[in-house]
Amino acid sequence: MNKQLNIKVRNAVLMTMAELIAEKKQALMVANHMDLEKYEGDDLAMRDRLKVDQAKIEGMVLSLQQLATQKDPLSVERFSFTHDNGIQVSNKTAPFGTILIIYESRPDVTIEAAGIAFKSGNKILLKGGKESLHSNLFLVDLWHKALEANEADTNWVTYLQFSRTETQAFLEKPSQKIDLIVPRGGERLIAFVKQHASCPVIVSGRGNNFLYIDDEADLEMAADIIINGKTSKISACNALDKVLVSRNLPRKQEFLQHLVKALKRHNVEILTDKKLEGLEGTSLMGSNAVWFEEFLDYKILLGQVPDLKEAIQLINTYGGGHSAAIITNNNEKADEFMTSIDAAAVYHNASTRFTDGGQFGLGGELAISTDKLHQRGPIGLQHLVTNKWYVKGNGQTRN
């Protein structure tokens, strides 16, 4: 393992990286254009994640600059205790060691996730998808330039240009010690990593996010939040997939017709359950299996439930454990919903699109975990550490 870099050097590397990306943005977009030209799939979400434009580059630069201003997450004392015999016991944060990040199509992960891992004192192994190879190799070369400029070893950031077969072999029998693996991608990637990994895995889970409109909801607010949640970024895991309306919603048909028209203006395909069958501009869902689907597309499912209790039960049955929202003016119902829903993030009168490390004040994220160990939801700088016990004595022995 590399000798730990002090915080000044880590921050300097991040700032140098930010400057290099800003300086080389045209070359980065050329490399990314090569990836886009070679991509032959018809997956809208995949293409959206793959594309690097001015806004994404600005986001990369900003995330690095913000990371450089964050407090050092290492050697933070979490607990201290003085034994009767005088031994001083303390517990402090420590890096994991080496973190492997496996991801699909997102060159910005090469910046944000690697930056968070690096700032928290970890060596990073990056395994991106073949669809973003040119973009990723260009960015890793910039990482190496930033490290060299600050007299740090380039093996703090390593790119693994492996085939699927080579990746499987590496997961099962790594050629170096790996302390943590974070897969960021679809369910097939996550299942593949969990099946073959020989060390702990933090799952950056799927979305399939629900919103419930209570019978005491502000309907104009509900429509605005639904449109934002569904259409602002279909490729995001925090995008909205399912909307449940209360059976007793006032002006229900009028509201639903207004919502359908608003969604249609964004070219959203609208499915309904049996209870809302026949709503103009919609089609009946094929089977109950649709409740489990994360769409990652201009597609949404509208359903009806009799009450809050049924909404909670349905969301906990079918939701992805990522994000869920309630729209209501009744704070007691909101509290019941938020404490009862089994998800990493729960919302009252707000869009699920805020489930994001930067939006939550973490200065970016490595991933959004739907696991419950060791961290749930956005994994920021302060979460990408483990801990170590420090025991100081002056000759004490245990009887």
Rank of each mutant, 00 (worst) to 15 (best):
E166Q: 12
E269N: 09
A31G: 00
G393H: 00
N32Y: 00
Q304L: 09
E104N: 04
P107F: 11
I341Q: 07
L279Q: 04
V89N: 08
G321I: 03
N85S: 14
R10A: 08
L100Q: 00
I87L: 14
L362M: 13
V203P: 00
G361S: 11
Q359A: 11
F96W: 13
I341F: 10
I99M: 09
D241S: 10
T231R: 06
D42P: 01
A146I: 13
S369D: 12
F162C: 10
S135M: 13
L301W: 06
L44E: 14
V52P: 02
S246G: 11
K25L: 11
L171E: 12
N32H: 03
L126P: 02
A27L: 14
D241M: 10
P174Q: 11
T352I: 00
E37A: 05
A239K: 12
T165S: 14
V61N: 05
Q161V: 15
D342G: 01
Q257H: 14
S369N: 09
S369P: 07
K92T: 15
F360R: 08
I315P: 02
D218K: 07
S135D: 12
A334H: 06
R247S: 15
G321H: 02
Q161A: 15
F354S: 00
R164T: 08
I213D: 09
L189H: 05
K194C: 14
G205E: 11
T386V: 13
G393W: 01
E112L: 10
R47V: 01
R188E: 13
